[in-house]
C-alpha cells in the first residue's frame, strides 16, 4: 500500500512559516513587571510557557496543513478472492409488483389460486429482492453489480465488492411503484457492456430477474449473442412466472409465440452457457438462487481502486484540540495586577 501523502491545495503550505509566530519573543498577552530578576525562578512556569508555545505552534501548523487538504492519494490494490462477478439485472416493471403464489399453492383449488395469489402472496419484486439480498450476504467473496431496467436500463451499482452498497441498491429498488415498459434487449445489452472494460478475472454471470420476455429484433439478438460470447458471460434467468404466465415446462405449439418462450428459445440458442429457473412461488425462487450459488466457485484476481482519503479533518481535530488547550491556558492566565 503506497501511503503517499498529497495535498489538494499545496500552495496553502506557503503559510506554514506562520506557525513560527509563537516563537517570537514579543507577545501581546504578557504583563509588564519592573524587575524579573527578583522573582523566583519557576521551572513549572517555564514548562507551561514552553507548552504554550508548542500548542500555539502546533495549532497554527495543523490549521495550515488542514487547509492544504492532505490525504492519501488514490491507490489500486490487487486482491484475490474466490467467486464470480455477478451482475444482477432486475426487472423494475409494474408487473413485478404483482403477488406471487404462496408456497402451498398446489394444495389449493385451481379456481381460487388466482384470487389467493392476489390477496396472500408476496409481491414478486419484494420476494426477489429479499432473496437476492440474502444471496449477496451469503457470498462475500463474489463481486456484484446491480442494474434495474424497465423501458431503459438504470445503472444502480457498478461491479464492486462493497456488499453494503449492493444491499442498499437492492433495498432502494423497493421504493415506489414499478415503471410501465420493459425492454429486455437494451437492458441485457447494457449489462453486457458493463463487463466490457473489465479485465477477465473470474467467471461472469448475468442474473436476469424478470417476469416477462420480449421478442427481440434480429440485430439485437446478434448484438447480445456476440456480446455474451465476447465477454464470456453465463446467463441465468430467474423467470418469475405469473399464475397464467407462460410455462417453460409445458411448451406447446401455441405457446411458442409467447414472448417469454421466444426469449427462452433465443437464450437456449446462445453459444454461451444459459440456465433458466422458473419460479412461481418464493420457494421456487429460493431454490433457484441456491442453485446459482452452488455453480460458481473459482478464484479470481481483481484490482480494487481505493479512493483518495482526506486527512484534513484529523488535522482540524488536532488544531481544535490545541486551540482548546490554548483557551484553557488563557483562562488561567493572570490578566492584571491586583
Amino acid at each position: 500500500m503506497g501511503a503517499l501523502l498529497d495535498f489538494t491545495q499545496p500552495w496553502m503550505l506557503m503559510a506554514l512559516p506562520l506557525a513560527l509566530l509563537p516563537l517570537l519573543p514579543n507577545r501581546r498577552d504578557t504583563l509588564q513587571f519592573s524587575h524579573l530578576a527578583w522573582l523566583p525562578a519557576d521551572r513549572a512556569g517555564h514548562m507551561l510557557s514552553t507548552a504554550w508555545r508548542a500548542c500555539a505552534l502546533l495549532a497554527i501548523a495543523s490549521v495550515v496543513l488542514a487547509l492544504a487538504g492532505p490525504g492519501r492519494s488514490q491507490t489500486q490494490v490487487m486482491r484475490t478472492g474466490t467467486g464470480a462477478e455477478i451482475l444482477v439485472l432486475i426487472d423494475r416493471s409494474r408487473s413485478m409488483d404483482e403477488r406471487m403464489l404462496t408456497s402451498d399453492w398446489q394444495t389449493l383449488d385451481p379456481l381460487v389460486v388466482r384470487y389467493q395469489a392476489q390477496s396472500r402472496g408476496q409481491p414478486k419484486g419484494k420476494a426477489a429482492r429479499d432473496l437476492l439480498s440474502k444471496f449477496v450476504d451469503e457470498r462475500p467473496h463474489d463481486r456484484f453489480g446491480l442494474m434495474c431496467f424497465s423501458a431503459n436500463p438504470i445503472h444502480v451499482a457498478p461491479i464492486t465488492r462493497r456488499t453494503e452498497f449492493i444491499q442498499a441498491g437492492i433495498t432502494a429498488g423497493g421504493v415506489g411503484r414499478g415503471l410501465t415498459n420493459t425492454d429486455v434487449g437494451w437492458a441485457l445489452n447494457s449489462a453486457i457492456q458493463a463487463f466490457d472494460q473489465r479485465a477477465y478475472s473470474g467467471s461472469r454471470i448475468i442474473l436476469l430477474v424478470s417476469d416477462g420476455g420480449a421478442k427481440l429484433a434480429t440485430d439485437v439478438r446478434r448484438q447480445l449473442r456476440e456480446g455474451l460470447l465476447r465477454n464470456r458471460i453465463t446467463l441465468n434467468w430467474i423467470y418469475l412466472r405469473s399464475v397464467n404466465g407462460a410455462d417453460f415446462n409445458a411448451i406447446s405449439e401455441q405457446s411458442e409465440t409467447l414472448p417469454e418462450i421466444a426469449l427462452h428459445r433465443f437464450f437456449q440458442s446462445l453459444q454461451t452457457p444459459y440456465t433458466a429457473y422458473q419460479a412461481m412461488s418464493p420457494q421456487d425462487l429460493a431454490d433457484a438462487v441456491t442453485d446459482i450459488g452452488n455453480q460458481q466457485h473459482f478464484p479470481i484476481d481483481f484490482i480494487e481502486q481505493i479512493p483518495r482519503r482526506d486527512y484534513s479533518r484529523y488535522f482540524l481535530a488536532t488544531a481544535a484540540f490545541f486551540c482548546a488547550m490554548l483557551l484553557a491556558y488563557r483562562a488561567f492566565r493572570l490578566r492584571e495586577w491586583s
Binding site: 513587571f33 524579573l36 512556569g45 510557557s49 488561567f332
Partner: peptide, 27 residues
Amino acid sequence: AEIEPPAQDAIAALDDSESGTSRTLWI
C-alpha cells in the same frame, strides 16, 4: 504588586520592562 504576589493561583506571563526578557510563572 512587586512585594506581594497575586492572591489567586494563575499563570503569569511576565515581561521585564527594562531588559525585555520574559518569564512565565505558575503562581
